[in-house]
Write a protein that binds this DNA or RNA. Structure first.
Length: 254
DNA sequence: AACATCAGCAACCGCCCCCGA
DNA sequence: CTCGGGGGCGGTTGCTGATGT
């Protein structure tokens, strides 16, 4: 069965990074009408994007309960364990990590966790590079979460398409399990916190829209502490699912 | 300071599955 | 039962910033 491509390039549909305006349009539209039909949504909302692109943008970045970046040690270990059992079923893994998306988990796996789980000697890289690699790994082991997230987050203010990274930062506060993490957080939060995010979300959920929001959107909003999308309940959820999973694993090995 | 290389991440692409007509 | 549309998933790509030379 051959199907017409979702995104017909002849229609002049836009590709590439989303702009702040496009994000606003999408969020406002979904807040008002939900997303019963992704294919029709961009046309109805007045976006020059294909439905898939809209869905991806919403599910991976714009949904209110999304956490961004700064994976805690617990989350990393959970991903590693789940991946060992499930393989590349990113959506299933993401389902066990509240607020995390399959795309993000997939990226983290390929960029960080895979190296840790399957450390392979570098045949082609120079010794200097190998040392760099090793020191990076050491850093990961000794001072999680990833330092690299810092560098990318500091540039959010300059982006056309700002990410709702306030949730990522706040999530680190609540998921950090040791003093080193907290120290790291203090440096990051106050030096690099992107001011745009609070404005961004307050705009999105401003009064004129919230009166007509669907019930589920209200729920999501109510789950948002001031600029934060992650609380201890979610954390408990993760523990719960992790326990369920690990118990299941144990049983399968008996 | 300039250039090269690497790492991280957002987004696209194509396939598959599910469900309704 | 078959077909077709829509959504979801996983793999991959390409851009951008960071780091090294």
């Amino acid at each position: 069965m051959v199907r017409a491509p979702c995104c017909d390039q002849k229609m002049g549909l836009k590709k590439g990074p989303w702009t702040h305006e496009e994000d606003q349009i999408l969020i406002n539209y979904i807040n008002l009408h939900g997303h019963p039909n992704w294919r029709a949504l961009p046309k109805l909302a007045g976006l020059l994007r294909c439905g898939k692109s809209c869905r991806l943008r919403w599910t991976n970045y714009l949904k209110p309960d999304i956490k961004r970046g700064n994976f805690s040690r617990e989350e990393e270990e959970t991903i590693i364990q789940l991946h060992a059992a499930m393989g590349n079923r990113w959506s299933a893994i993401a389902a066990k990590l509240p607020g995390r998306t399959d795309n993000e988990i997939k990226n983290v796996w390929h960029t960080h966790l895979k190296k840790r789980v399957n450390p392979k000697p570098n045949k082609n890289t120079s010794k200097v590079q190998q040392n760099v690699e090793e020191s990076k790994e050491d850093n990961l082991e000794s001072s999680a979460p990833f330092d690299t997230n810092l560098s990318t987050q500091t540039s959010y203010n300059e982006l056309d398409s700002p990410q709702p990274s306030s949730t990522s930062i706040s999530s680190s506060i609540t998921t950090s399990t040791n003093d080193n993490d907290n120290l790291w957080m203090e440096d990051m939060v106050f030096d690099n916190f992107p001011e745009i995010d609070d404005e961004f979300w307050s705009e999105v959920f401003s009064g004129e829209n919230s009166g007509e929001l669907p019930a589920d959107v209200h729920e999501n909003i109510s789950q948002l502490p001031s600029g934060c999308g992650y609380d201890s309940n979610v954390h408990d959820d993760m523990d719960f699912w992790f326990n369920v999973f690990t118990r299941g694993e144990e049983l399968t090995h008996i």
